[in-house]
């Protein structure tokens, strides 16, 4: 993935601010990766290299962590994150059906992001709202009892918002998403 102009500086500045010129103890690696991802939305290679250097470990070791844990992503996420719960209760009452409906509607598979970077689709293990199964977490909101019709409804509610957000300040991830078809 090529970084766009300005992105490199932003990544370095973010990582520097978090590392704060302190040597990084190895057992702070995961909290630091979590913070970097919270700021940037993902873990760019450049960030992983800087963090590895600060902790005195090889870059491949940090890569190992980033690819081992579900939480970490190596690519910028979509603007909206759809997380379909695949906990036991949700699965038994149609979580799979909801996931397939999203996949069909968006033309992507779980774990992927739409080419326009508007949506990314993930499956998550129990979000702990089993009593409203099947559950989908749309950005930060929990939607309960999601049937295929409701899937359409959720996606429809985001339609036409592109126009509204144009003028807003853009995060690097958003810049990225518009630059890449």
């Amino acid at each position: 993935m090529e970084l766009l102009e300005g992105e490199k500086e932003q990544i370095l500045a973010t990582v520097d601010a978090i590392l704060n010129n302190q040597p990084l103890q190895k057992d702070r690696l995961i909290p630091v990766l979590q913070r970097v991802q919270a700021e940037l939305g993902y873990l760019p290679g450049l960030a992983m290299e800087k963090i590895a250097a600060a902790a005195g470990v090889s870059a491949v070791e940090v890569y190992g962590l980033a690819t081992f844990y579900n939480q970490f992503r190596l690519n910028p996420p979509g603007k909206h994150q759809l997380k379909v719960c695949m906990g036991t209760a949700c699965y038994m009452v149609g979580g799979q059906i909801a996931l397939e409906s999203f996949e069909r509607r968006l033309g992507i598979k779980e774990g992927e992001t739409t080419p326009d970077r508007k949506f990314s689709l993930e499956r998550v293990a129990c979000v702990g709202c089993c009593t409203m199964a099947p559950v989908v977490v749309v950005d930060e909101n929990v939607e309960g009892h999601v049937t295929p019709t409701r899937v359409d409804g959720i996606l429809l509610s985001f339609e036409g918002e592109e126009g509204k957000t144009r003028g807003e300040a853009k995060s690097p991830a958003a810049v990225e998403s518009e630059a890449k078809p």
Binding site: G45, V57, A59, V60, E61, Y63, G64, T67, F68
Partner: peptide
């Protein structure tokens, strides 16, 4: 690589059935 040569070129990455020996990225 890591303990004898002390280079750090390769390591384990990913999890489960996808666990593999890889380089950085």
């Amino acid at each position: 690589d890591q303990e004898v040569a002390k280079i750090g070129a390769i390591g384990f990455s990913r999890r489960g059935i996808n666990r593999s020996v890889t380089t950085f990225k």
